[in-house]
Simulated scan of single mutants.
Amino acid sequence: MKKIPDKEILLFRTCLVNVEYPGVESSTKYLFDRIGVEYHVDERQSCCTGLGHYYDLFDQLSTTALAARNFHIAADSGHHNIATMCSTCYAILKKSAKLLNENDEVREKINGIFHDAGLQKMEYERGTVDPRNSIFHVAEILFNKREDIAPLVKVDFSDLKIASHHACHYCKVHYKDTIGGVADPNLLDELLKACGVETIGWYDHKRVTCGAGFRQRFTNNETSLEVTG
């Protein structure tokens, strides 16, 4: 299993979380503070472009260039481990890091853009960010600290029947990095179990999309809502 850090973490802010569910960010900070996770939020950080990228508004080069800029900010802040609250940010950043490390043409183009803009300090050096060991989902950080979370539980949910649903962009994009498997994902199940909550485990639609599918959400809204239903 990949090594999951609890310090030197850049808590990556996300457009969807901040706009639609801001309580996710405040709750994450609250939990991190309680369980001893050292993190930093940087105002210089920009959007990952995920929503626009999957809607074909941002091409891969632009998305990867912005990721390179965010990687520089993480390193400059002394918080080289990046934790995202959004599974789309997670998938986007990992793919961008992989491209920057493995595709010389992409890396040289982006570094050329930085150079021409007078931003030589942001130029990316191959291997600066390890997609597997530098970029994490917040749920992974919490999973790693689940024994520290358990004593903090104040509400008994044991009488509820709870089904977990894992995000596609966490489970289905970078299979080898997914904690808890992809055929029957159980990262959230195990995290809940540590908090005294038993889930129903497997059910027929556990791996089915939530229906969002960004492009579908806007162009085929009725279909998207039907899948969600």
Score class of each variant (00 low, 15 high):
7 K>V: 11
95 K>F: 06
55 Y>N: 12
42 D>P: 04
74 A>G: 04
50 G>W: 09
67 A>V: 09
24 V>L: 06
30 Y>N: 00
114 F>L: 03
216 Q>A: 15
92 I>Q: 06
165 H>G: 02
128 T>I: 00
163 A>V: 03
168 C>Y: 12
1 M>H: 12
105 E>I: 15
224 S>N: 15
164 S>R: 03
200 I>T: 03
113 I>L: 07
77 S>P: 05
212 A>W: 05
226 E>Y: 15
35 I>P: 12
82 I>H: 01
202 W>G: 11
74 A>Y: 07
30 Y>D: 08
67 A>C: 00
146 R>N: 03
122 M>L: 12
217 R>C: 14
206 K>D: 05
198 E>R: 13
210 C>P: 01
65 A>H: 03
161 K>F: 11
103 N>K: 13
36 G>D: 12
44 R>N: 04
7 K>S: 15
56 D>N: 13
200 I>Q: 04
95 K>D: 10
48 C>R: 04
221 N>W: 15
158 S>Y: 09
198 E>W: 12
105 E>D: 14
179 I>Y: 00
218 F>Q: 15
206 K>T: 06
190 E>M: 14
207 R>N: 07
70 N>F: 01
193 K>I: 12
92 I>Y: 09
216 Q>E: 14
22 P>F: 01
162 I>E: 05
156 D>S: 14
29 K>T: 14
164 S>L: 04
139 A>N: 03
27 S>K: 05
19 V>K: 02
83 A>G: 10
112 G>V: 08
84 T>F: 05
138 V>K: 09
224 S>F: 15
193 K>W: 11
99 L>V: 05
159 D>F: 06
13 R>K: 06
113 I>K: 01
34 R>Y: 13
59 D>N: 08
140 E>L: 06
131 P>I: 01
80 H>I: 08
127 G>A: 04
81 N>S: 01
107 R>A: 02
102 E>T: 13
146 R>Q: 06
156 D>Y: 09
171 C>N: 13
199 T>R: 00
139 A>D: 06
3 K>M: 02
96 S>Q: 09
179 I>T: 09
40 H>W: 13
141 I>M: 01
26 S>Y: 12
50 G>S: 07
194 A>Q: 07
186 N>Y: 13
81 N>R: 08
59 D>C: 05
122 M>W: 07
159 D>Y: 11
114 F>P: 00
25 E>D: 02
66 L>E: 01
95 K>L: 12
136 F>Q: 00
3 K>E: 06
79 H>G: 00
97 A>S: 03
123 E>H: 11
151 P>N: 10
170 Y>A: 12
18 N>A: 00
140 E>R: 03
210 C>K: 04
219 T>Q: 13
171 C>I: 13
193 K>F: 15
73 I>K: 00
207 R>T: 01
62 S>R: 09
96 S>D: 10
180 G>W: 00
80 H>T: 10
181 G>F: 09
195 C>K: 11
201 G>S: 12
103 N>A: 11
169 H>S: 04
202 W>S: 11
153 V>N: 11
101 N>A: 05
6 D>H: 14
17 V>T: 05
96 S>E: 06
183 A>R: 13
105 E>A: 11
137 H>F: 08
165 H>L: 05
87 S>H: 00
226 E>C: 14
1 M>N: 10
178 T>S: 05
95 K>E: 14
54 Y>M: 02
63 T>F: 04
43 E>N: 04
118 G>F: 11
229 G>C: 15
156 D>N: 15
77 S>Q: 13
158 S>I: 10
226 E>P: 15
163 A>W: 07
